[in-house]
């Protein structure tokens, strides 16, 4: 099932996601208004209260035979009806683009990038974008974004949700709504958004990296002694091993530089599921994740072996992503 998901992958909209996002769920374009994204509209409770007030005014107008009271009652009723049209117009015709999100580690934040396209249309006010932090949670952990949109403008919104579990985390359904202009009606448009964020396991565990095999030999290799050729610095990214941080630079408040070593003469690492000293699958995956990051950070070539999946030795961004993705999508059912 998970593998089937990863097949569909094509970034139609260039977004902030990098090359690794090619394996996340596809982004999409959604138009609010026409089928299947109909805009619904209903009175709010203030709308119902307003109707009651108008009813009372109408009774008063009839009772006192007051011409101007009739005029006012009908004027306010018409204003409410016209405001309903405005509420609809405030949503309809909007185009929403969802770009593929960057993968995230469990425990960090998944970021979904939306572009709300209002080109060639009048300004919109007080839009609410509601989303669900965790689509599987029974209690609704909803978040709401408020935004205005100028005429002819494109707005970018970032929806941040806690990345909770490894695997594909869907953004869930988005609900665009507005109570503009008077709050008497609420127009809303539920959107089934396919976008999912790939969530890597949480990098965890204190077990040291397995020993490196000498080039060509996988078994009884020696652990890297860290005396590989120093290749330079780069900025810290989550998952880097603390051992590679250049702590002296940190003390001088020069950011968090990470030492890089050229792996030219480094041996290959084999990161094996069975080598993790834990019986819990998740703990093992977390440890493997840690190892992958450490190995990648140290510039080693490494291979990953999971029950039912083998990833041949390699290095670099794409290799790291392949390994992490395998960990993210590992299912015990797939073990054979």
């Amino acid at each position: 099932m998970n593998t089937a998901r990863s097949v569909r992958a094509a970034a139609e909209i260039p977004g902030p996601a990098d090359a690794t996002s090619a394996s996340t769920r596809p982004p999409g374009l959604y138009a609010l208004g026409p089928k299947p994204n109909r805009v619904y509209i209903l009175p709010t409770r203030y709308g119902y209260a307003f109707t009651l007030a108008l009813g009372a005014m109408l009774l008063g107008a009839i009772n006192y035979n007051n011409g101007l009271a009739y005029v006012l009652t009908f004027l306010l009723a018409s204003v409410a009806l016209v405001s309903m049209l405005h509420a609809n117009r405030n949503l309809a015709g909007l185009k929403l683009g969802v770009s593929a999100p960057k993968p995230a580690f469990a425990g960090s934040t998944a970021r979904f990038y939306l572009s709300i396209d209002n080109r060639g249309q009048a300004a919109r006010y007080a839009l609410n974008v509601r989303y669900r932090y965790d689509p599987d949670a029974s209690d609704k952990l909803d978040g709401v974004h408020h935004t205005d949109l100028a005429a002819d403008a494109v707005a970018r919104e970032v929806i941040e949700a806690p990345a909770i579990r490894r695997g594909f985390q869907p953004l869930g359904d988005l609900v665009f709504s507005t109570r503009f202009p008077f709050g008497l009606f609420r127009a809303w448009c539920p959107l089934k958004i396919g976008a999912e964020c790939l969530v890597y396991p949480r990098p965890e565990g204190r077990q040291a990296l397995p020993a490196r095999a000498a080039a060509g030999t996988r078994e009884n290799g020696l652990r890297g002694d860290g005396r590989d050729d120093f290749a330079g610095f780069r900025d810290y990214v989550p998952g880097d091993s603390p051992r590679q941080i250049h702590w002296k630079a940190v003390a001088r408040e020069q950011g968090l530089p990470v030492k890089l070593f050229s792996g030219a003469n480094a041996g290959e690492l084999l990161l094996r599921f069975e080598d993790v000293n834990s019986t819990r699958t998740e703990a093992r995956l977390s440890q493997l994740c840690r190892w992958v990051l450490d190995a990648d950070g140290a510039g080693f070539r490494y291979a990953l072996s999971l029950p039912g999946a083998e990833i041949p030795p390699g290095d670099g961004e794409v290799h790291r992503h392949a390994c992490l993705k395998a960990l993210a999508l590992f299912s015990s059912g797939a073990r054979s």
Partner: peptide, 29 residues
């Protein structure tokens, strides 16, 4: 003013919007 949140509409524009909707409501009225 009370229902729009947040709002790029300054008070003059809120009043103008109210006037525009009032005008649009006249035929139905």
């Amino acid at each position: 003013a009370i229902s729009t949140e947040p709002s790029a509409l300054v008070p003059q524009r809120q009043l103008r919007l109210a006037a525009v909707i009032l005008l649009q409501a006249v035929p139905v009225m």
